[in-house]
Design a protein around this nucleic acid. Structure first.
Lengths: 304, 304
DNA sequence: CATAGTTATGAGTAGAATTCATTAATAATA
DNA sequence: TATTATTAATGAATTCTACTCATAACTATG
């Protein structure tokens, strides 16, 4: 009766607090999940979720099943790693090229876990700037690229990760603090604080400012914390992923504002060579990354 | 990809050592399992089973999945017990009437586990002889009957447990030791050692001897070990389930012979009132009993 | 009060898991 | 050695069920 799909659904419900968001998370329709829930509830004779206005909440029973889900899915993943070990497909290299600097925040713990699970895989971060990161894959300079490119190229697979919003980050006392939404024009006279990468790699500039003919001053810093410190001390404005600044915003260290009426969004993909895509350790890496991101990063949206 | 049904199949394969027997165990066709196995193998790129002449053997990968199965299915059962607790359907009574004396061998450890899992359920064995045990259910004298009756009666549900063979048990030096198969006539001059129950409850007498007009002498003992001791010391012949005497036969304490060309078989059912059947603790009891029996008793066959 | 966001539900569909029918292979029996 | 009885594998057909679609009912928000 109970099936693994139910468990996956339950964790998604738990993490999203909404049937429709959970549906996106598991790549099904809202209706499908609603049916699943109904079946479960009538089978156990217990409510699993409880409507709380807009969103939903898990009942005690629901929470118990989420706990089960955690254990079971974990054990399955472990078993599948062991199967890879048995089939001796356990070595190789995973050199990661990171297009999005902030991503290092969530990537680091995942890399740590990965090293534990796949001691024979050579794990590395490919440093330096690369104008065409996908080319790196073809040339053998990297095994995966984490970036926003997703154009079809032969021999390349793009695994969708998630969509996220880029917010403008300001000092709490900044003169623009009154505006709920910042427009391109608001950036005319400010210093933009960014990572040290070319302009075409900064979404705010490429998608918003340059089309509007605005070219603000730039100042760079290597680390997210350094950028935030500069922002907080009135050296300028930054544009960073919502999940990358959440804790700073929550502590009123900085404030965040939407860019443009519908916001500035960016998509993240994990790109690999087609051959690499089937390797067990790559599948495991992908799975862990997705799970970890959806579990820990707020405000991200699943991609097709 | 991997589904719970695969795990159930894997344990069945492990316990039976044969695809067709495993199929019976999970109530599917041999073909279905064969397809399942194929899917799994091609998905993991690994053989799961290996043909060993008639029977099959699990590969290392298969064994790893069986281990997974054990853990996962166990955790699910535990979670479902907790759900019952949450829905407060956790108390009631489970008074068991045992028609088959030998069954106590496998029932006892199950009862011990049950007591742990359902401390609020009043667990008991109903003692004494009952001419119509099913009537006990209707009269409220017992909650479940473990026996071989399965005639349809309104308000009663018979949950099939398994089919087993009843073997004649002889002292190793018995004069009949030369015969591979015993016929009714062979019992003409022997003493039959049985549990202290009426003749109509002894399958050997009801199905074989009485139809052949043979009425051997009887001597009774309460316990299986006592019966076997009498047999070993040449006081007579007994007729007991194959799984009940396995260890004694393996140690050459007694020998066992088939009764009639196709053997003497008996079916076991767990019968309850329809209302009782839906209680969580009853479902749990049934599930545990089936699993335990198929895991530990050799030579039993699943029923429809 | 309209609108954009939810969740719930019944009907229809598509896809996958199972059965059926058959073949090939292995072990037991004569 | 031939014969019979089991067992597993495979492809085609079928059955079933989980999903999508379309829609209704409902809730917050401006």
């Amino acid at each position: 009766m109970l099936e693994l799909r139910h468990l996956r659904t339950l964790t998604a419900l738990h993490e999203t607090g909404s049937v429709s968001r959970a549906a996106k998370r598991v790549h099904l329709t809202q209706s499908a999940l609603s049916h699943q829930i109904k079946v479960l509830q009538s089978h156990y004779g217990l409510p699993i979720i409880q409507r709380r206005g807009q969103s939903i909440e898990l009942t005690e029973a629901g929470k118990r099943l989420v706990a089960l889900s955690g254990k079971v899915l974990e054990e399955i993943q472990t078993a599948e790693r062991d199967l890879a070990r048995i089939s001796q497909q356990t070595s190789g290299s995973l050199r990661i090229a990171l297009e999005c600097h902030t991503c290092f925040d969530w990537l680091m713990p995942i890399m740590d876990a990965f090293r534990q699970h796949w001691p024979e895989v050579e794990l590395d971060l490919v440093s330096g700037f690369h104008s065409d990161p996908i080319k790196l894959l073809e040339e053998g300079g990297a095994d995966v690229v984490i970036g926003s490119e997703c154009q079809r190229r032969r021999g390349i697979v793009h695994h969708p990760l998630f969509r996220f919003e880029i917010l403008a980050v300001l000092a709490p006392e900044h003169t623009l603090r009154g505006k709920r939404i910042l427009q391109a024009a608001d950036f005319a006279d400010v210093t933009l604080i960014t990572y040290p990468v070319p302009e075409e790699r900064i979404d705010l500039i490429r998608k918003v400012l340059r089309p509007a003919g605005i070219h603000p001053q730039r100042r760079t810093a290597e680390l997210t914390v350094a950028i935030l410190q500069l922002v907080a001390s009135h050296r300028g404005i930054a544009a960073l992923p919502s999940w990358g600044i959440k804790s700073y915003v929550d502590h009123d260290y900085v404030i965040a504002r939407r860019i443009g009426a519908s916001g500035l969004w960016s998509d993240l993909y994990v790109s690999t060579l087609k051959e690499t895509a089937s390797r067990p350790y790559l599948r495991d890496f992908l799975m862990t990354a997705k799970n970890a991101c959806f579990a820990t990063l707020e405000g991200i949206i699943p991609l097709a």
